[in-house]
Design a protein around this nucleic acid. Sequence first.
DNA 1: CTGAAAGCGCTTACAG
DNA 2: CTGAAAGCGCTTACAG
Lengths: 336, 336
Amino acid sequence: MSDIVSGADVAALAGVSVKTVSNVVNGYEHVRPQTRAKVQQAIDDLGYRPNLSARSLRKGQTGIIALAVPELTSSYFAELARGIIENAEEKGLTVLVDQTDGRRGRELLVLQGIRSNLVDGAIFSPLALGRDDGLTLRAKVPLVLLGERVFDGDVDHVAFDNVAAARAAVEHLVSRGRTRIAVIGAQNPRTAETAHLRIQGYRDAVRSAGLSTHSAFEVQVDHWHRTDGAKAARRLLSGSSRPDAIFCCNDVLALGAMRELHLAGVRVPDDIAVVGIDDIEEAAFSTPSLSTVAPDKAALAKLSVQLLVERISNPSSRTAPRDIQVGFELIVRDSS
Amino acid sequence: MSDIVSGADVAALAGVSVKTVSNVVNGYEHVRPQTRAKVQQAIDDLGYRPNLSARSLRKGQTGIIALAVPELTSSYFAELARGIIENAEEKGLTVLVDQTDGRRGRELLVLQGIRSNLVDGAIFSPLALGRDDGLTLRAKVPLVLLGERVFDGDVDHVAFDNVAAARAAVEHLVSRGRTRIAVIGAQNPRTAETAHLRIQGYRDAVRSAGLSTHSAFEVQVDHWHRTDGAKAARRLLSGSSRPDAIFCCNDVLALGAMRELHLAGVRVPDDIAVVGIDDIEEAAFSTPSLSTVAPDKAALAKLSVQLLVERISNPSSRTAPRDIQVGFELIVRDSS
DNA sequence: CTGAAAGCGCTTACAG
DNA sequence: CTGAAAGCGCTTACAG
């Protein structure tokens, strides 16, 4: 729209060199107040705004980081994205959100470095890619992994203790006197590391309580979506032995399951108690409201940005990859 | 991480000029197959990837567009964002998602052109800014407005007919024999254009049906969030005359209201029928499932990207601003 | 405290 | 069909 104004134009108007303009723009200390004022005036008059492409070309960094998540329409990731964007902004970084849809191809692309040299680094929540891909991670840019350590490479990662979180959820059900506790959300263990860990936490808790596990109570799903939760609940209801509680590997599964239970005339929590993981906003507003385990999303967002910034600003550092865990909290609502 | 490889390095290895490398990279037609192969080989060997900052600097465009929405955690915008990102990708454009939180300051920043010269254009869904801001839109980049035309400037905009959509929702309630129809979602008319229009559609339909409107049935809210819907429902229930139907200005309000009705022992739809607008995924899974008006989000996403691309690739065009409307559909579920 | 000059990696007229 | 050279707008040693 408006004509392009360069630093040189500003310099000409202010009667200084481009170097001085650059100094003013970048808040360099040692500029005489009078000179600074003159330059600032020229900047305002001309409506000058530095060209980011030129700056990036010169500095070798773009100030953009990628955030690669399976889906934006999932509340959990939307809430996380929001926190990450806020934290990045504070550090002067712009976030490019990348939706992988949990597809292998797209996730591999993330490792490839995403859109050439567009981003300085990436925060990546893998879904399809797992340890079995035998990927010794060879990312082209600094990377911070969200969730489990599913790669062997030299990557930082921040997560919360999935096993412990699942255990906490199930222990809560046990404390409510439930004895036939089912789980919804098992997945192909070769790829779905998070599912694997949460199922493990479930089994730990069930066994510790002296209850028996049986395979019909572990319902496998394709995705962690609402419909999968509903379908899984249907399967549990049609089984020979009905559970009196269901631990769902995430809130959305739980919400889908609860809806199905409702349709089947099953009362929650009276007949079957339900607990999820994630604490998405919706959980507090469902009918009945959903008990869940809330990971510390604020810490997750803050730390992932912090680690990435450290790697970006110090690329040659041989700091060993860091594994950071954030806390979680059991939130008891009406569904249990 | 890996060393930076430039086009010149590729040229040297392939024994050609950088021009030829550029031609190959950009798929220029007239390159001898043999030369192309040689260059491609060198590119692969070196792991060359063109530097986007340099390209942007040269071309004066970055290939990035902004999408500015009030919130990502709102399913409606998350779903829309997804569609827009997909469409943009097809056109070789990268989308930067910007969360305004509906704050004036941040929305003004969008108009300012967002992050200097980082983006080639923007798709913008304003919330706080309205006609009364007296803003003759003077955006620094091509802009496509999502939603109502709230600016006088030279902007394209794509929306759906809010008045008609609201009318359709209310007419449906009338057809169900409801006579005391309330509405949740009125807002300060000075700023909230969309609310204003949906309320207008509500009033139109109520009057056309020969029913009386009264102010206690028009509940004003601060935001279109779940809690606002719940609070508004509470207010309606405590009034002297109870409605037998509620039209909610969006699905999230409706979901909040339904939860409140449930807590109060009010049966939906038996005692009070509820209808929303948006058709977010959750609407199909609530208990009871929510009747709603579904805007054609796919068209919204496709057209907004298309219009923006036209403006970007033809910046000097004096094409008059275009107002495009996409369709909608009434979806009847269990709540009515 | 400020200036003149080089160079980041690319594309694009201009020649040939 | 390909090469040599200029220039996009910025920052950064290097001088002074």
